[in-house]
Design a protein around this nucleic acid. Sequence first.
DNA 1: CAGCATCCAGGAGGATACTG
DNA 2: CAGTATCCTCCTGGATGCTG
Lengths: 113, 113
Amino acid sequence: MREKTLEEYLGCPFHLAMNTLEGKWKFAILYVLLDKGTLRFKDLERAIPDISTRMLVKELKHLEEKKVIVRKAYAEVPPRVEYSLSEIGKSLSPVIDSISDWGKSYANSLSEK
Amino acid sequence: MREKTLEEYLGCPFHLAMNTLEGKWKFAILYVLLDKGTLRFKDLERAIPDISTRMLVKELKHLEEKKVIVRKAYAEVPPRVEYSLSEIGKSLSPVIDSISDWGKSYANSLSEK
DNA sequence: CAGCATCCAGGAGGATACTG
DNA sequence: CAGTATCCTCCTGGATGCTG
């Protein structure tokens, strides 16, 4: 039995993390940015075909407020806005990997039976 | 740039994982079972004070269908039902840890500025 | 191009009361 | 004890059209 309580374990950092990663499209956006580095709004929309404009805007805004991604707007016409991961955003890689890894062994364990 | 596409990476195993872990209380239940090993329904309710009976039933049922937890009912009066993690359920520990770890460094990076 | 405004449906999740 | 059964609210997310 672990020594930490539910409160300590799931308490602050865990819920903080879940809070910023919650939402249908967060991981997709994160992965694409992890993959490509920097993308414009339209490119993100193309990279995640099923997302609606409204949702992409909302999720990006949320991630930006949470300091996970960085938004850089250029004063040009037509407008250009580039999104990339912050340092803390890049450090999410192990999280995505561990979930993906678990998913693989989970899929295996399901097909074995 | 990674070689996998969004489809390959987020495609099957990742979404499979997210699917079974989705929901407000999944991680809380998982953590408590990881912590205590085996618990009766009422004990789970006590361990997660804010959850409603309805939600606990739903989440447990979902996790059982997904083969992540094991339900064992005893033919007694009053009834006794015990929940525990399956092998694949126990292997979720790294996922929970990586999220929790990221949450910690995230909290640090927020407070530094 | 990079969004914002609006409307809308469906589902997640809460509160309460009841049963074998 | 271990759930069911209802009812209800709010929020997520989709569709569409418009703007600087």
